[in-house]
Design a protein around this nucleic acid. Structure first.
Ligand SMILES: [Mn+2]
Ligand SMILES: [Mn+2]
Ligand SMILES: [Zn+2]
Ligand SMILES: [Zn+2]
Lengths: 150, 150
DNA sequence: GTTGCAATTGCAACGAGTTGCTGAATCTAT
DNA sequence: ATAGATTCAGCAACTCGTTGCAATTGCAAC
């Protein structure tokens, strides 16, 4: 968190290119996202940044995350846990299947969504941004006609 | 809202079959959902039911809606408006494409998701419950290489 | 290095949604 | 019809996330 994080400059440039200001708060939020591996909640980011910058306000974190999501740098996902998960986009595109009965989550390769993306673009002229999806349903074990599901 | 709504008995049976109790509050929430056409927020339902039953509590509405969603009778969807939309399932399966720039929403036929459903079932053994999806992205006009999008 | 303006922060108050607890209501069995 | 077991409703307090406003700050132009 304290030193230069790999990709700092790249992310900084992304902010500039979008006409957004580069502020310490924003760089710290980005650093926190880069430090944490995978999903982080807004409060996890908040607590992490506050260790070295205690004046940070919660709403600044939320507003920063909103901007980053608009820019496409960050994906926000509701995995059904009651708190939204944030994650830097670009590393490993993937999605999640979430079982509504047992809570199991299955990782879903991004290419599985490719045909749907293509169809939405072709038939509806819509460029879907599915960076980090959550699809709810029932895993094999929890389905009525499954092993232990009935 | 006051009289027998078409389907009252069916919905009541659905509660019973699931081992849930049939309470006036639950029937009123169901009636409100049946009365309203399409999307309703929890507070819209709350206000509607409260007209004839002023003692109703907001948390009862939320808890009832949670149960109905678990049962698959109701779909809940975040359309990006800051408030969740609830809707009785079963009438006309459809989904929404939501443009993150201009806000336009395009209705999406349910069969477009069928191939994805099939693939998730076959490859992952996962029974996806996509009753009323929201997919975010950019509409034709708002895409960089589109008519007015650049 | 100063100046000026727009973007951003912090704050406080708010809105949506959740949760633990207690009394009340539903359902089952008699 | 009654009683008992259990679910459910209402309440209050809470968490997550948003918003209006005033003060501050980043950045570009001088
Ligand atoms: Mn993930
Ligand atoms: Mn709809
Ligand atoms: Zn499961
Ligand atoms: Zn658009």
């Amino acid at each position: 968190m304290s030193g230069e994080v790999q990709g700092d400059k790249t992310l900084q440039d992304a902010l500039r290119r979008a006409g957004l200001r580069v502020t310490p708060q924003r760089m710290m939020v980005l650093a926190a996202l880069a430090a944490g591996e995978g999903h982080m909640t807004a409060d996890e980011i908040f607590d992490l940044v506050r260790r070295e910058y205690p004046f940070l306000n919660r709403s600044t974190v939320y507003r920063t995350l909103d901007r980053l999501v608009e820019l496409g740098l960050v994906a926000v996902t509701d995995l059904g846990e009651g708190v939204r998960q944030y994650e830097l986009v670009g590393t490993q595109p993937h999605h999640h299947l979430v079982c509504q009965r047992c809570g199991e989550t299955i990782e879903l390769a991004d290419e599985v969504l490719q045909p749907l993306r293509a169809r939405l673009q072709e038939d509806y002229g819509f460029a879907a941004r599915m960076d980090h999806f959550a699809i709810f349903g029932l895993c094999r074990a929890c389905q009525p006609d499954g092993p232990t599901g009935g």
